[in-house]
Lab assay of single mutants.
Amino acid sequence: MPVRRGHVAPQNTFLDTIIRKFEGQSRKFIIANARVENCAVIYCNDGFCELCGYSRAEVMQRPCTCDFLHGPRTQRRAAAQIAQALLGAEERKVEIAFYRKDGSCFLCLVDVVPVKNEDGAVIMFILNFEVVMEKDMVGSPAHDTNHRGPPTSWLAPGRAKTFRLKLPALLALTARESSVRSGGAGGAGAPGAVVVDVDLTPAAPSSESLALDEVTAMDNHVAGLGPAEERRALVGPGSPPRSAPGQLPSPRAHSLNPDASGSSCSLARTRSRESCASVRRASSADDIEAMRAGVLPPPPRHASTGAMHPLRSGLLNSTSDSDLVRYRTISKIPQITLNFVDLKGDPFLASPTSDREIIAPKIKERTHNVTEKVTQVLSLGADVLPEYKLQAPRIHRWTILHYSPFKAVWDWLILLLVIYTAVFTPYSAAFLLKETEEGPPATECGYACQPLAVVDLIVDIMFIVDILINFRTTYVNANEEVVSHPGRIAVHYFKGWFLIDMVAAIPFDLLI
């Protein structure tokens, strides 16, 4: 008679799926529990143990900040960024110097990925580790590398530091407007667009060049630039800015003055950032001319202004700041037409079709709590990747769950009947059967004279019903998954307890 339990259901295979997918890609990662103190490590794979030199037993239950890997060259700011990422709910990448158990130093890129439950609360953290440099290539500990984003994938490793954006290309926007319009339909740009040429040739750093990471940081200074100062900065030398009595002219307006920039070969870094931020506020060169004239017309309804409409929906549905990093990277690809469009465009503009998908598509409701890094690593669709929660398995109709209350009560009843059979069957065979043979035949009273025979008949009927119930009862397979398919249940029961239950259900007393 089957006594099969499996009270692990309803099970959740999400954690096993993450481990299996990460292991298949030869990654070095740990999984931490966000619900406990210090976000203790609950799993670390073999790749991480080989990377740091510690065994799994030495890593388990330690804080996922990996303070046991810190050393003299470990930056405090990087460690603080990892700790801050564990307090938030967004994906974050941090470069930090770690030390192995043998004392060797290596520069590592740590990717902190939160995993949320159905309520939107962070319950786990996945920390992925990628070695960037070994100890002989690690720089000085005073050099802070965590304020910069990861290198873009479309640049060669040897040319990542030679990417320079020439400031004269930004200063000569109005001069290039006529050349853009003359391109017409034969050019790649839309009317009114501004073409910015980027020099990728390796050259020595000069005062006129600005690194790509500095251009990325310009967006942080746009908020500090007032509207009046932006307007004066875009007017140009024809209309000098008016300053109040006793007030000095704005240095932001002076930063885009061609006369002032041409007199000296070098520009201050602050002026460069502010000038680029001011130019980015204009949607095209037409807006710059309109600002000089004193009238700013409404933005025209053409394809170039609607190019950012799908980007707005993608940004609203993005799951991490990696989408913004990807957008900034692609927006700086050289030799393309940049349409400086305000994100607050007309909502009635139709979304044009684009061959290049900048932001990841909208994630469906079932995966809105899973970050983009987890979705990318697992390579699963929205119909396959579940949320991290207890999910009731989908069972067929008329199927009994093996952990249901009805099955528990039924098993206790069958257990009592088995005990009765084990006690009274030998007793009936030894004593009652002998008395029946010696006594007179009682054929007239039937079952009324033999109450134990009636009980034995009921017990046999219950055993037959138990066999039928076992054909529709779920079970737990070797992978700790609840199986509810009727065919698989029948095959599993035939290979197991079916023969024993059938022999126990045969009414031998009635056959004798």
Rank of each mutant, 00 (worst) to 15 (best):
A203M: 14
E90T: 08
A175F: 01
I363A: 09
A185V: 12
V112I: 15
L338P: 15
K116T: 10
A268N: 14
L378P: 04
P2Y: 15
V198S: 05
L248R: 11
Q81G: 11
L15H: 04
A188E: 08
N117G: 15
R4A: 13
Y43N: 01
R77M: 14
S283C: 07
G224F: 15
L69S: 01
G226L: 10
D286W: 04
L212N: 09
L311M: 14
R62F: 04
N146P: 06
S104A: 07
Q247P: 15
H302G: 14
S263C: 07
E37Y: 05
I336C: 15
R27D: 07
I336V: 14
S322K: 11
P361M: 12
G139N: 07
S104D: 08
D102T: 05
N128Q: 15
M218T: 04
E357P: 12
T353L: 11
L225M: 12
D144S: 14
V8P: 07
S239T: 12
V110W: 01
P141Q: 15
T353E: 08
T13C: 13
R4Q: 12
G238I: 11
K373C: 07
S272G: 05
L316A: 11
L343N: 12
V279M: 09
R292P: 11
L338H: 15
E177F: 05
T216D: 06
P114I: 01
M291I: 04
Q247V: 15
V295M: 08
Y54P: 01
A185T: 09
A253D: 06
G246N: 04
I82P: 01
I333A: 09
K344R: 05
M291P: 11
A172Q: 07
S331F: 04
L155A: 10
D342P: 05
R181E: 06
I363G: 05
A190V: 13
C39G: 08
T17S: 07
L256R: 12
Q376S: 09
L51S: 01
N317W: 09
S283V: 11
E58Y: 10
Y327V: 08
E118V: 09
S140V: 07
F340A: 14
G236K: 04
Q11K: 09
L311N: 15
T270K: 04
C276W: 05
A160R: 09
D111Y: 06
P72E: 07
A80T: 11
G183A: 08
L15V: 14
V122N: 06
R366D: 04
R301S: 15
S206I: 12
S206F: 06
G186F: 06
M124Q: 03
P249L: 12
V3L: 13
N12G: 15
R76L: 10
T319N: 09
L51G: 01
R56Q: 04
G314N: 14
L200H: 11
G187W: 11
I358R: 11
P249T: 14
S178A: 14
G226H: 13
S278Y: 09
A282D: 07
I330F: 12
L167D: 10
R273V: 12
G158A: 14
V325H: 08
A217K: 14
D259E: 14
L51I: 07
N339V: 01
P240I: 08
S140L: 10
H309C: 12
A217M: 05
R181N: 06
I82M: 08
L173M: 13
A350I: 09
G88N: 13
L225H: 06
I363H: 15
S239F: 09
F48D: 01
T216S: 14
I96Y: 01
M137W: 14
K28T: 12
T13R: 13
C276V: 09
F106M: 08
A193W: 01
I42P: 01
W154Q: 07
G71T: 01
C66V: 14
Q84E: 15
T337G: 12
I18W: 10
V180N: 09
L87M: 10
C108W: 01
V115D: 01
G120V: 06
A80Y: 06
P150M: 07
E118R: 06
D323W: 07
N45I: 01
V198D: 03
Q25Y: 08
A303C: 06
E230R: 08
R100A: 06
L349Q: 05
E357C: 14
P334C: 01
S206T: 15
L248N: 12
I363K: 07
N220I: 07
L165A: 15
V36P: 06
V194A: 06
F348Q: 14
H147I: 01
S322H: 13
K161V: 01
T201E: 09
R20D: 06
A57T: 13
N257W: 12
K332M: 05
A160Y: 11
V3W: 13
